[in-house]
Design a binder for these strands. Structure first.
Length: 287
DNA sequence: GATAATGTTCGATC
DNA sequence: AGATCGAACATTAT
């Protein structure tokens, strides 16, 4: 569920509560969410103090004073929650006990999320993160998107979702960004005009920033670090709105859903078109 | 019961 | 080599 704004929200919630805190013990209830053994995780974390919480794309990075970092990728349904007074949420997979009281829970219904230990030093860490491009909110990320768009034929939505190009944009925000930029999702990336690229750049920044400000989108599962839903769902203009009237001022279009790369895309053919309908059968010209 | 779900990865194929 | 496609992962909600 979580994309860049959701992970950033969790980072901001957890950071003040974790900096300088020592991890007393770790309970592993579902070892399959770990890239390493439960024994190795406990050995690396027990007694270590949290030095910083960072983020790259959708990955939360917990730096420890031992030099080891823990990379957390929530994938579809992962949650990081500050332990509260109430009953524990469902699907708790890991519990981090802090010295002096307090806990951080890792809950994950589908258990697709992954936690990975990064060896000592920044080098080992950047190797683990090497499969991801620069963060979508970094100047480098914007630049990477512009470069890739110029030379690749792939549909622009697929490019936005390609974490090796730039990291952080997921299925919800890809649709939202393209709608704000008034670009049809099936447009070949290399067909975008200068003006369109410029709108894309700006829309990316604006949508992600607004979503962070609203503390993320809770479409179904997402919870902030304090267990609350994010408020951006009410501001989504296309995602999940198939059949509804387009919210763009002056546009009388209707939002449609199509499928790209096995995933739903929501868009308005009126203000993001006109363009060839998606999912039209591919005509194979036989040699 | 079938379907889809805020994501990544792997193997096969073009 | 590089791009692309489908399946797999695991579980719930509709």
């Amino acid at each position: 569920m979580p994309e860049l704004p959701e992970v950033e929200t969790i980072r901001r919630d957890l950071r003040p509560r974790l900096l300088g805190r020592r991890i007393e013990s770790v309970r592993v209830l579902r070892a399959s969410v770990l890239e390493c053994s439960a024994r190795k995780l406990r050995a690396a974390l027990t007694g270590a103090t949290v030095r910083d919480l960072r983020r790259r794309g959708k990955v939360l990075i917990v730096d420890l004073d031992s030099g080891v970092s823990l990379l957390v990728h929530l994938r579809m349904t992962g949650q990081l929650l500050l332990g509260g007074d109430g009953p524990d949420p469902r699907f708790v997979r890991l519990v981090f006990h802090l010295a002096g009281g307090g806990r951080v829970l890792y809950a994950d219904c589908r258990a697709l999320g992954r936690l990975e230990l990064c060896g000592s030093g920044d080098l080992a860490c950047s190797r683990s993160l090497a499969r991801f491009g620069p963060d979508a909110l970094d100047a480098a990320g914007v630049d990477a998107l512009m470069q890739a768009a110029r030379r690749r034929r792939t549909p622009i939505k697929c490019l936005l979702l390609d974490q090796t190009v730039l990291a952080g944009i997921g299925n919800i925000y890809a649709s939202e960004i393209l709608h704000l930029a008034r670009i049809a999702p099936d447009r070949p990336a290399d067909s975008l005009t200068r003006a369109e690229l410029s709108r894309l750049q700006r829309a990316t920044r604006d949508v992600l920033a607004a979503a962070i400000e609203a503390r993320g989108t809770t479409f179904s599962d997402f919870r902030t670090g304090t267990g609350e839903p994010g408020r951006y769902a009410a501001r989504l203009r296309v995602y999940g709105r198939e059949g509804e009237r387009c919210k763009r001022r002056g546009c009388r279009g209707t939002i449609v859903r199509s499928v790209q790369q096995q995933r739903s895309t929501f868009w308005c053919p009126m203000c993001q078109g006109p363009h060839a309908a998606m999912n039209s059968p591919v005509v194979n010209v036989c040699p």
